[in-house]
Design a binder for these strands. Structure first.
Lengths: 115, 115
DNA sequence: ATAGTTACTTTCCTAAAGGTAACGGATAGT
DNA sequence: ACTATCCGTTACCTTTAGGAAAGTAACTAT
């Protein structure tokens, strides 16, 4: 009937905690959301898309995502150097999380508004 | 083809940020996960299920979840007072997020292990 | 020579998250 | 009177997240 119904395995709670630890925070979902939409983005594009983020924070988030094999970083030898970030195949696995969050967020807004 | 493919609306990014703001953090997903599994839990059950959480933090998380209409709090007039927490109908909307996170977490573990 | 662009890094700082430990009120058992 | 249970609260402290502002390196254009 429900998604979780047969008992909570220790493995599953660990997987949940891993996912939370990696993806929690103010920006990672937004970055991945943008990246999945546009496919490939430069640093500045990402900064403009994630309104309010500072270069320092963006840089840190991107490094963490790269370390976890969710994005790739490519340096182009252009006049002023440009860098491209793109989602990896593995990043596709976070799409369901993002769309579920999006869905929840929209439903939640309605419910909170009308109380 | 993909879940997000037609443009990023401002509303959707706001919904995403709302969801992140509410659910981000170390414990809320775990608490909701447990609550959905067991249906109704007392304070102490929740504390034992979320290994490592302290009463202060648990108390705060539960208040936030209650304020956001994701759980209900019921005080029973038993010998030593007991309190029951249960998920609301609205909390069902976070189940897809949890199962997607769980799924991602498991896939991610495999990918990170074998690199 | 000066100024602009891109992609950061560095330093400094504040606020929030989260942990530790102890305590409190209600009630009941011994 | 003492102890225990349950559900917290309170005070205190440390850690982390994240923001502000400036700087840097490499290059180009004027």
């Amino acid at each position: 009937m429900s998604v979780v119904n047969k008992g909570i395995s220790k493995g599953s709670i660990l997987a949940l905690k891993d996912a939370i630890e990696l993806l929690s925070g103010k920006w990672k979902f937004c970055i991945l959301h943008n990246l999945h939409h546009y496919g490939t983005m430069r640093f500045k594009d990402l900064q403009e898309a994630a309104v309010g983020i500072t270069p320092k924070v963006l840089s840190k988030e991107l490094q963490e995502l790269e370390n976890n094999l969710l994005i790739t970083r490519t340096v182009n030898n252009t006049k002023p150097v440009t860098v491209c970030y793109a989602p990896t195949k593995h990043a596709i696995d976070v799409l369901p999380v993002i769309s579920a969050l999006l869905d929840f967020g929209e439903k939640h807004r309605k419910i909170i508004k009308g109380r």
